[in-house]
Nucleic acid binder design. Structure first.
Lengths: 128, 128
DNA sequence: CGATTCATGAGAACGATTCTCACGCTTGGT
DNA sequence: ACCAAGCGTGAGAATCGTTCTCATGAATCG
């Protein structure tokens, strides 16, 4: 076996599902505490990392360097357009960018190309 | 006044110019120490931040979340293709991606679009 | 039911970065 | 050049997100 089902993992998964936007491990920990499903902070971190490794959640860093997690609609590879202020997120499909990234990498003889492509902006609601 | 010229700032700028690849504040601090131009770590951090704010150096985060700095050839906006292992860097021009990012942002009614687009790969030399 | 072994949690440890604050040096004006 | 004014500096403390430690708890398999 490699992954056991525990009360904690179920709780983190559920808390994650209730969120619409990207959240930090600490925020999710707080959500869990508020719900009464107390889970240790270290466990929240570990669980999120496990989910991310299994590609069950998406992960990105905000400008402050904090890691944020979110369970996205689509499982396939995609990018995000995130509101700087409320974190409202739009999942983006970028076949053009993917191709561009691959081409640029090949052109310079780099392999195993990986790309970090995220868009940040201010959404209509946060503009007043 | 807002920016004074000090021995420390000159030293950091010079150390930065001697580097071909992206370096962390701590690495640059070490470079300075090795050269004999001792500068406090806090000052290195502050100075790099100042340079970055003035867009005199480019800044990005590696997978570990560390911030890396580099004085690039071109001053205009561009992206980077960086070798994961040796950090060899290629400056990339991405008019297509820029346009794509702007269009996607507008399509979802987000303003002040900012994008994080960096490519990571393994360069020819690091492949053996 | 038990044994095995992964998972958990509290707190310590870490590592990068920022802050504090007294002292020093650059600068602009004279 | 000389000085006053105030930004810049540095050593170490403080932050803060994240990871590690390790004894204890609980899924899972037979």
């Amino acid at each position: 076996m490699t992954t056991r089902m525990t009360r904690q993992r179920a709780a983190v998964a559920e808390a994650l599902d209730q969120q619409d936007e990207f959240r930090s491990a600490q925020q999710l920990h707080e959500v869990l505490r508020a719900r009464g499903d107390s889970v240790g902070l270290a466990t929240v971190y570990r669980t999120l990392q496990t989910f991310a490794d299994a590609q069950e959640v998406d992960q990105l860093r905000n400008a402050d360097g904090e890691v944020l997690y979110r369970r996205c609609e689509r499982v396939e590879h995609h990018h995000h357009l995130v509101c700087r202020s409320c974190r409202r997120t739009v999942e983006i499909d970028g076949p053009t960018v993917e191709a561009w990234a691959a081409k640029v990498g090949a052109a310079h003889d780099f392999t195993d190309i990986d790309h970090t492509i995220e868009l940040w902006g201010t959404c209509a609601d946060c503009r007043g």
